[in-house]
Design a protein around this nucleic acid. Structure first.
Lengths: 239, 239
DNA sequence: TGGAAAAAGTGATGGAAATCACTTTCTAAA
DNA sequence: TTTAGAAAGTGATTTCCATCACTTTTTCCA
């Protein structure tokens, strides 16, 4: 079913209405605290789109007019520096949202969003969202909350880029992964090592070498391409 | 006049009531769009404090319970990395505010705030602020706006740390200063070179050398300790 | 206003990691 | 299943900049 949106969207397709919109609205922290009838109202404003792996959802410089919520798949958010180098800012998965920077600011995207696999997103336009924010102040507070976390993460990352060596940044990243995949000593890297190198502000070669080094030193074991088993948690924390 | 607050505040002093509170509320972008009677209401919730140069306003790990607005002076916000190195995140001047990260998040400060000179701040407690946010949704939208800018700045900075060399980062910083002090080719650095080195993720020695290098190459001229005259704008942009 | 402390400047040195060049392994699409 | 093309691994080399050690200048406050 082709969608009936105005803009060029031969590449994305509106999906089966209500069930999907409901899942979007009710699965995301900024809306799921609302009353049912309020969520229903928001659902009506939501449109769905699908992107194939590799497709660009928006580019820096694009006019921004929507909030995007990930319903399925993964999105890579990255920036290009003045000198043209790519840097991955974050990876969005189920329930994460983006587009908001430009929604409140000058309405021009500063970053790129690319589907890392086949991905479904829900969209709410800027004007619809602004209406909801004024009507339901608690949504703003939820978004403020989310922004705070992100701001903290961004500042923390910036600080680590200039104050920690690559080994330490990698160790910190691995420990963070552990926290998310609680209990188990094993997990899968959430992105390719190439992407990881960009995310951590280094190069693929260095990631290769440093991971091998951590393995040699007995801190971790690499399993297949993306698997990591942590053998010495305390050790990692002390790097 | 000593203030009557509960916490240890022998070092700060409540200042002369109404006029100062008014200036705080009406000078800051997140409130100054409100109706007069709404601002009056907020003013009642505002308390003022003064800090002497060098005093710490809050530390990482402190419980956060207030929004701070700068009414006079300058505040240096910095973080300590895991390995204990200091990194300056931003400098607050008249009308800027801080404390908000912790206000919406876990209520623990992640950074340090230090008065760079004798500084007056206005404070609003978390609970008062939350009330205003629910009552006047437009305040949230203003803060969202501010957060967006900061988030963009933080991500941009993080990206530049890992994708640009020090020369480039310095050049970018100088150009940014130019933008703020529009029209003139001369301006004062907003912080010491030591602080600048921390802000740009490098060392004082490197800042010294690179600035000297930019001067030798004819891009700029250094005037006294903090003055910079830009001689070749286009050149700087191409570094 | 003099003097101590902090900031800034400068030279020499070392080291972490980028870069380059190439091989090997993986992956996904025909 | 085959096979191009991407990702990952590895060694050699280079480069940028942190670090160390010291001098000079500035700041500020007793």
């Amino acid at each position: 079913m082709q969608c009936n949106c105005k803009h060029n969207c031969n590449h994305h397709v509106c999906s089966d209405e209500n069930t999907s919109h409901r899942s979007c609205v009710s699965s995301v922290s900024i809306f799921n605290h609302l009353e049912d009838h309020q969520m229903d109202e928001i659902m009506k404003a939501v449109k769905s789109f699908s992107y194939k792996k590799g497709e660009i959802i928006y580019s820096a410089g694009d006019q921004s007019n929507s909030l995007y919520i990930v319903r399925r798949g993964k999105i890579r958010i990255y920036r290009l520096s003045e000198s043209g180098k790519e840097q991955i800012v974050r990876i969005l998965t189920l329930g994460d949202f983006t587009g908001e920077l430009a929604l409140f600011k000058e309405s021009i995207h500063e970053s790129f969003a690319e589907a890392m696999e086949d991905t479904d997103v829900c969209m709410i336009t800027r004007s619809d969202l602004q209406g909801f924010l004024l009507r339901y102040p608690s949504i703003s507070i939820k978004i403020l909350n989310e922004f705070s976390k992100r701001l903290d993460a961004a500042e923390k990352q910036a600080t680590s880029f200039v104050t920690e060596k690559v080994d330490k940044r990698i160790a910190m990243f691995l420990l963070e992964c552990m926290d998310n995949h609680k209990e188990s000593m094993e997990f899968e890297l959430p992105m390719s090592k190439k992407d990881l190198s960009s995310y951590l502000g280094t190069t693929p070669e260095t990631i290769s070498r440093k991971l091998a080094q951590l393995e040699d030193a007995g801190y971790i074991r690499q399993i297949a391409s993306r698997g990591i088993e942590v053998l010495d948690l305390e050790g990692l924390q002390l790097i």
